[in-house]
Design a protein around this nucleic acid. Structure first.
Lengths: 170, 170
DNA sequence: AGTTTAAGTCAGCGTTGTTGACATTCCAAG
DNA sequence: CTTGGAATGTCAACAACGCTGACTTAAACT
């Protein structure tokens, strides 16, 4: 019966739980969970002329104010043309401010305006609310495991970006 | 110092670890990890004329052979027009076979061909390899927590799809 | 038999990713 | 001081994959 599959994998050093079936379930869980993860911000953005790309840009500019375009490029992992299109609309709409670098005037340093910060708040509030709910439901031990697995799943370069952001936390 | 942030959240019933900062880190972890999650299949698909949508269709047809288009629609959460474009190319390329329903001739039942199964294997091998590596690195307890949190993060309907697929496991 | 409902198709559009070519601006090395 | 290269930005074209709207066909229901 179904209960057999709902049992927790064996603890300890056993690695027998890594069957293809378990891995497939994990893959599907990742797929469905990511849909939930993005659902709330997507709903907010749908009403505006923005999409997920705008959300990501706003998130990381808020996270690291004054970041350069090139730095953002590395974090987001897209081409400058793709990012530029998003940034242009955000700047035109007054959500993002681009300041020429003082030391290196080739660089543009990006900041959220008050309006941009307001949208960031709205989006991240929604996303945090879901994450908070999931964490409360799952409990602290599960959360620790969740983060451990996510970090192990990243590519090394992404892991570096992640660590850099984390280590520069306020 | 950085070690302070690298400590595991407090265990037990404490919920103090649910600060906005912890949640934000989790959000970023989810973002970077999902990139890793899709990276390997994406690389394989890039060489062909296929994308992530084809991968998803192939995955779930393999998972539930004979599934109807409408069922697949509900699982994938896209419009039938969007799915149809993908299915048409997969059928034209001989990876998927579509059979008219016997009871209800309006329905089409979908199956992978040998060639389709071969591609599915290639894609899922790559994705499972990463997942297996992450699971081995993180350990069984972390894996259990990972799955718990992912399930709590899903929308109820997605959770139902996930459970249905899991309960029909071979 | 005629209407409604469901499944699937076709046409067209928007967002967001891609490449390629190119201009501009500027730092830094020769 | 000139030149090479780096950082940025723009234009154009294209692909993947979401979406809506209009339509055909088949089944089901009055």
């Amino acid at each position: 019966m179904a209960d057999g599959r709902m049992m927790a994998p064996p603890s300890g050093e056993s690695l027998l739980f890594l069957t293809d079936e378990h891995l497939r379930q994990a893959i599907e869980a990742m797929f469905f969970a990511y849909r939930g993860f993005t659902a709330d911000p997507d709903r907010i953005l749908a009403d505006m002329a923005y999409g997920r790309a705008h959300h990501r840009a706003i998130h990381f500019i808020n996270r690291a104010p004054g970041t350069t375009v090139n730095n953002l490029l590395n974090i987001l992992g897209v081409t400058k043309q793709s990012l530029n299109r998003v940034l242009r609309t955000l700047i035109a709409d007054g959500l993002v401010q681009s300041r020429v670098g003082r030391n290196d005037k080739r660089e543009r340093h990006l900041f959220l305006t008050d309006e941009g910060r307001a949208l960031e708040q709205k989006l991240s509030d929604a996303q945090r609310a879901r994450m908070r709910m999931a964490f409360r439901t799952a409990g602290p031990e599960a959360v620790a495991g969740f983060r451990t697995v996510l970090e192990a799943m990243m590519d090394p370069e992404m892991r570096e970006s992640f660590d850099r952001l984390r280590d520069s936390a306020p």
